[in-house]
Design a protein around this nucleic acid. Structure first.
Lengths: 160, 160
DNA sequence: CGGATGGTTCGGTATTGACCGAACTCAACG
DNA sequence: CGTTGAGTTCGGTCAATACCGAACCATCCG
């Protein structure tokens, strides 16, 4: 497959971005590549080729990405090879993952409040605020996702 | 200041949480401590004492946290020491930081689309979707924050 | 049974960076 | 002045981990 200067850059920036949010650089590059490649499903050897990474790195990165539901495995009848492509719900999935951080924060605040059970309301205020704000976001977030789901259909993105 | 088993645990969990989202463990512990301490403003030496960390680590962690607007410096007339406390807007600040990640993702997708200028719409679809979804979230997110801002007032959290 | 192809696991290397202790700077005060 | 306290900067150490190459496993063909 062709590989222009610009696509190459795109892949690198992807690598850096996803590395920045906690994945590895190679995993990020894989995502980048899977976002632009044709066809959209690729086998490991193709990724190795396209990214100039080692078989082993690609193998483990794909396993991680699959675990995170960012990438999914695909197979075709009469072909024993495994292909990979960006997962159907990868984006809403990662939004939900982020939402989960909200929950963690709320739980954290509740834990703190428990530790300060007998303290004055004034002292507990910082934690109460933290709990309430994250609780609010926790309920609003799914609303946003639902709203997007509707728009998504209208825009003809059903299959993504 | 007293330091029970439970508060100690809270601080450690905070350390781990914030380490998990990209800060250092010590920075996380500082946040944890500043969320529950009395008075809510502390000087470096008190943090060193409370957390059992070194002066240097606390110094650099506080600098980082201050740069990120998660913690702010406070001073009092007639007292030349510097105190630190959780920043007034630390939570909305970190929400906005997260929102910024949405923007980065959208820009990333636009970069990819540019690289695929001459490709078929079908091939560009993955990136178009990514751009549109993040764009949508980018506009909805501030709405959520505004909504919270109103509720916040009603709940008597004006000063946080 | 080879042998080729596709993929995983393992050991080692090299980089990164968090943290600490010690040395240093700077003020204020005796 | 020197001393004390508050804070920063520097150098070094230690732990974590991303990545690679090589060895290994499995499955299908001739």
């Amino acid at each position: 497959m062709e590989n222009t200067e610009k696509t190459q850059q795109f892949i690198e920036v992807c690598g850096l971005y996803f590395e920045g949010i906690g994945l590895t650089r190679i995993a990020g590059r894989i995502i980048g590549w899977l976002l632009i490649c044709e066809p959209p499903h690729q086998q490991q050897s193709e990724l190795v080729e396209a990214l100039g990474a080692s078989k082993s790195s690609v193998s483990v990165a794909l396993k991680d990405l699959t675990m995170l539901y960012l990438v999914e495995r695909v197979s075709f009848p009469g072909d024993r090879r495994t292909y990979y492509r960006t997962a159907k719900d990868m984006w809403s999935r990662s939004f939900r993952a982020r939402m989960h951080q909200l929950t963690e924060l709320r739980l954290l605040s509740e834990r703190g409040l428990e530790a300060l059970q007998d303290a004055t309301p004034e002292r507990r205020k910082r934690l109460s605020f933290m709990r309430d704000m994250n609780g609010f976001m926790e309920t609003e977030f799914p609303r946003m996702l639902d709203a997007w789901d509707k728009i998504k259909k209208d825009k003809g993105y059903d299959d993504l």
